[in-house]
Design a protein around this nucleic acid. Sequence first.
DNA 1: GCGGCCTATGTGACCAAGTCACCGACGAAT
DNA 2: ATTCGTCGGTGACTTGGTCACATAGGCCGC
Lengths: 219, 219
Amino acid sequence: MTAATHWLDRAPGLGTLDGETRRQLEAIRPITIPKGHVLFRPGDEVTCFGVLIGGRVDVYLTGATGREILLYSITPGESCVQSTLGLLGEDDYSAEAVAETDVEAVMIPRSLFLSLLGTSEAFRTFVFQAFAKRLQSVMQVLERVAFIRIEARLAAALLERADDSGLVRATHQELATAIGSVREVISRRLEILSKKGLVSLDRGTIQVVSRTGLAALIT
Amino acid sequence: MTAATHWLDRAPGLGTLDGETRRQLEAIRPITIPKGHVLFRPGDEVTCFGVLIGGRVDVYLTGATGREILLYSITPGESCVQSTLGLLGEDDYSAEAVAETDVEAVMIPRSLFLSLLGTSEAFRTFVFQAFAKRLQSVMQVLERVAFIRIEARLAAALLERADDSGLVRATHQELATAIGSVREVISRRLEILSKKGLVSLDRGTIQVVSRTGLAALIT
DNA sequence: GCGGCCTATGTGACCAAGTCACCGACGAAT
DNA sequence: ATTCGTCGGTGACTTGGTCACATAGGCCGC
């Protein structure tokens, strides 16, 4: 409850709220959600505005065939824009959100959400910027899927996910979902990359050998 | 100037504004933009919040190879969400907007836009709903491009664009852009559809012969 | 330390879609 | 009638996705 730092201060963009708004939000107790839990699926009704405090939630778009594509990840301090969509546009969720780690989140009820929008400029800015960011990022996903070849998308994904030592912890399936492709194609591409000496492969991990070599593929 | 109906009443969602907000907006004079004019391109800086009153503006995403894909069309009463993005998210435009007809629009300066967001709930709702709608529609475009086969997308596009008599006025290139494909593929698909007797082809137009036949392809 | 079982990956054959290069056909303008 | 620009047709080829299986590693219970 009276933690050293209140959750409001761990959510960038909400730390600057004015006094009255702050009081109203402070009353809300964060909840925790276990890893693997599905927060919502297509067709679910929207009831709350969610803000993430800890952990990571991935939001996927699912095709009729079961293929999935990663729309974006929600990281601490970010709100779940899908819920804004529902609260304001009167539509249900059209995507699926999965907790990739244990997750701590604050659920703001619809009525408080709407009233805060009216009374707090800082809150409004927070919501709008989150919105703008998601629209941008979904447009970027679209741009990549529509216009960029697999090899370049894969190289970019590997560089993005590599840790300091160049290790990428991801299965071929996960990479495929992240860049909007399928496992088989990723397996084959990775084999080509490994024959070129740019990466080396292991079960569940990929070791980036040449960052510059991969970067050169992105064009 | 003193037209029979003020432009505010021709923009659904803005007709219900409260008195003060209305006064501030009434002062703004609509501008006209000739058909074919490019309203903005990727990288342009955002200065105004645009609301369309008459005509149609199409917004495209452009790939490195010059390929384009239609993100959405703006019709009367709708705002240009791309500009909201820029005004709130501090990013420049990443898409391109083209006037498909002569266009009448109102440009709300940034400062007034931000102040209205704070003072008018109706205006806020207008902006948010437009935002939500666009995010939904961009996600739909992504879903279609990523998961739906060309044949189904084409059939849907034809049915959507057919007038009462089943006539579609569009070139193969336009259809290709609308569904995120390329001209050659559309030409070939259309030929197949015409051999099946579902459409008949002419330079610049396609005649839908069997709506039910096309509908069956959408699955 | 063996047999099951789950997950991750490898592979070939095939199909769908995009790319490239070029051609021909139509219509408007001169 | 010639020229030119737009529109549409076509073949050859590449890339990427689908389907159907084949391995193969790791964990667990026994």
